[in-house]
């Protein structure tokens, strides 16, 4: 398997705070990698560096043969191929579910409206919301909004999907419907980098789990290794808190 995402020695500072320190991580094509860690450990920041919503202060990030961290590089082209799902969904409130999904394919890729909406319907069906195409985000539950957001990201045919705490803002009864969609994505071979504490999802789908603390990657392993027999003291302490 080829390397899809290659993060090497990435650091990111906000003024005086070093949010990410010298992080290196490789995600192979089709792999699902989960990043866990306490709040403020830099996991979201690292994720956001991958599509350059945050610009890494140093280090390199590659997606296939494209250098994300190249300041002269065409970041828009890279972002087209990197879908992102946010904690707070960030659906566009003035557009219906269907329009939310079809907007970017139309405007960025120039796909004709009818075709883009056709595809959007297929994606809505796939996330189980076929009947909600004319609903506005504020008419949808949190779980439904997040599923629309996943469909919106998929509409660009990304080869990588980034998830930034996709279930943290959801009521408990809605978490499963979102995780189910993510599980089916993983089963289809999507390359996924996920910031989340969902242990069930990790055990079911993750190839690797990465533990971050204070900006550093402390430990990396399979879900079994990391959850059942963590090597590092800090990992153990953290897992005790969340399990």
């Amino acid at each position: 398997m080829a390397d899809r995402i290659r993060i090497t020695n990435v650091s990111k500072s906000f003024r005086t705070v070093e949010a990410v320190r010298n992080a290196s991580l490789t995600v192979q094509t089709g792999q699902v990698v989960l990043i866990i860690g306490p709040s403020g450990s830099g996991k979201s920041t690292l994720l956001r560096c991958v599509n350059r919503l945050e610009t890494a202060t140093s280090g390199e990030i590659w997606i296939d043969d494209q250098l994300v961290t190249d300041p002269k590089g065409n970041i828009r082209q890279i972002r087209e191929e990197v879908g992102m799902v946010f904690q707070n969904f960030n659906l566009f409130p003035h557009l219906t579910a269907l329009q939310n999904i079809a907007l970017s394919p139309r405007k960025v890729k120039g796909i004709p409206r009818a075709q883009a909406e056709e595809r959007a319907r297929v994606l809505l069906t796939r996330v189980g919301l076929a009947e909600k195409e004319d609903s506005y985000p504020d008419q949808l539950s949190g779980g439904q909004q997040q599923r629309v957001a996943i469909a919106r990201a998929l509409a660009m045919d990304p080869k990588v999907m980034l998830f930034d705490e996709p279930t943290s803002a959801l009521d408990p009864e809605m978490i499963k419907e979102v995780l189910d969609v993510m599980l089916s994505l993983a089963a289809e071979g999507m390359t996924m980098l996920v910031v989340s504490h969902e242990m069930g999802f990790a055990r079911a789908a993750a190839d690797l789990v990465v533990f971050m603390d204070q900006g550093e990657i402390i430990e990396t392993g399979t879900p079994e290794q990391l959850f059942d027999s963590p090597k590092e003291e800090r990992t153990r302490r953290f897992l005790k808190h969340i399990l």
Partner: peptide, 24 residues
């Protein structure tokens, strides 16, 4: 988050303003 979502979808800042931010 609205601007970030638009950028993450590959839009330019101008497109994001025009299609996402200004209508709101």
């Amino acid at each position: 988050g609205q601007m970030e979502a638009a950028l993450a979808l590959g839009m330019s800042r101008r497109q994001a303003l025009q299609l996402v931010i200004l209508p709101q």
